[in-house]
Amino acid sequence: MLSASIRSSVLEIKRIASVHMRKERRDVESQSSSKTSFCTRHGLWWTFGIDIPLLLILLALIGLFELGVIPNHKAGFYCNDPALNFPFNGDTVTTEILMSTLLAGPLVFFAITEYIFVYVDYSESRIRRTCINTFYLYRTYIYGLIMNLSIVEVMKGIVGSPRPTFFDLCEPDAGKTCNGTEYVKDFKCTSTKYASWYQMDSYRSFPSGHTSLSVYCGLFLAWYLQRRAFNWSHRSIFMVPMLQLLCISYAAVCSLTRITDHRHHWWDVLVGSIIGLATVLYAVIISSNFSYDHSKIGDLKSQESRQTVRTLLYDERRPATVS
């Protein structure tokens, strides 16, 4: 009888403990759900109330700089300067080609790479996870790209350095009457061959925007491949290095053709390269607030099988953040 009493007491204790554990689990899940809902609302408020308006203001300012609505400084020139007397023959890499590759290329690149390397379990769609990963990677990329463009536009507007094709594009009025190597500070473009935008752009040489943007794009993609897809144990050991070489070659071609086309001086290209490198380092190392969880919290089995790549762009074991 005593043994039966003890057994019933033990069973009762287990039942009570089980009830308490289920209650605590429901409380934790409820708190987690409530916290996630709050973070989502908080993140959306910051995104639509602060981030997007600031981004639109910044893009508007860049557009006003580019269109000349916000005045640009004119640095002046020396009469008969041979370094500014090259004919304008167009661009090997046009602005349209550059911007299309800068915006569309990385998006496709991220999507294909993530689809190949992403981990998914039975409860998740591979395409959905690929889209989420691609979104957060592309957001980081665009953040650095806009910062790069902003720095270049401000420097162009402040310095106002003449291009090597300055005399052909601008045909400054003072250049027709000055003698020798006299320095001309005030001038007005009088060209009838080129539109007003080309005339204004003739004294926006420093630094090279093509160079800074292409270097940023090429190095960002090469860095991403190194941290995400590079592994000597893969079946193809040369695929990733060849793709990295292609990315760096893209940056080199866009940069060096600015000199061979006589669209920039060599120091413009050098400084543009430095800006591109600096913004890449900022985007992938310093701006760690773009981290995103690529795994499900609490799924220990998935965490064990997901020991792939933890990059400086995202950490797969960090909690999900909404911004």
Rank of each mutant, 00 (worst) to 15 (best):
S3R: 13
S9L: 14
L11S: 08
E12C: 07
I13F: 05
I16E: 11
S18I: 01
R22P: 01
E24R: 11
E24T: 12
R25E: 15
S30M: 08
Q31A: 14
S33Q: 12
K35A: 13
K35M: 14
F38G: 04
T40D: 10
W45M: 12
W45E: 10
W46C: 12
T47L: 14
I52V: 14
L54W: 03
L55H: 00
L56Y: 04
L64R: 11
V69C: 07
V69S: 11
I70Q: 08
K74H: 13
A75E: 11
F77S: 02
F88A: 07
N89V: 08
G90L: 06
V93Q: 01
T95I: 10
E96A: 15
E96M: 09
L98Q: 06
M99I: 11
S100T: 15
S100F: 09
L103M: 13
L103H: 05
G105F: 15
V108P: 01
F109I: 05
F110D: 04
A111M: 13
T113V: 13
Y115A: 09
F117V: 09
F117S: 09
Y119L: 12
Y119C: 11
S125I: 06
I127N: 07
I127L: 15
R128M: 08
T130P: 04
Y138A: 04
I142P: 02
G144W: 01
G144P: 05
L145P: 00
S150G: 05
V152H: 02
V154Q: 01
V154L: 14
G160W: 06
G160L: 07
G160T: 07
F166G: 05
P172Y: 03
P172E: 04
A174E: 13
A174W: 03
G175E: 09
T177M: 03
T181G: 07
V184T: 06
C189S: 04
T192G: 04
A195I: 10
Y198S: 14
F206T: 04
V215A: 00
Y224K: 05
L225C: 07
Q226E: 10
R228E: 11
F230M: 08
S236M: 09
S236I: 12
S236L: 10
M239R: 09
V240L: 03
L243N: 03
L246H: 03
C247A: 07
S249P: 00
Y250L: 06
A251G: 04
V253T: 01
I259C: 00
H264W: 01
D268P: 02
D268A: 03
L270E: 02
L270A: 15
V271D: 01
G276H: 05
L277V: 15
L277N: 06
T279I: 06
V284H: 04
I285K: 13
I285W: 08
I286A: 06
S291C: 09
Y292W: 13
D293G: 14
H294L: 10
I297S: 14
G298K: 06
L300R: 14
Q303L: 15
Q303S: 14
E304S: 12
R306V: 09
Q307N: 14
Q307A: 13
V309C: 10
V309K: 13
R310A: 12
L312Q: 07
Y314Q: 07
E316V: 12
P319Y: 06
P319D: 11
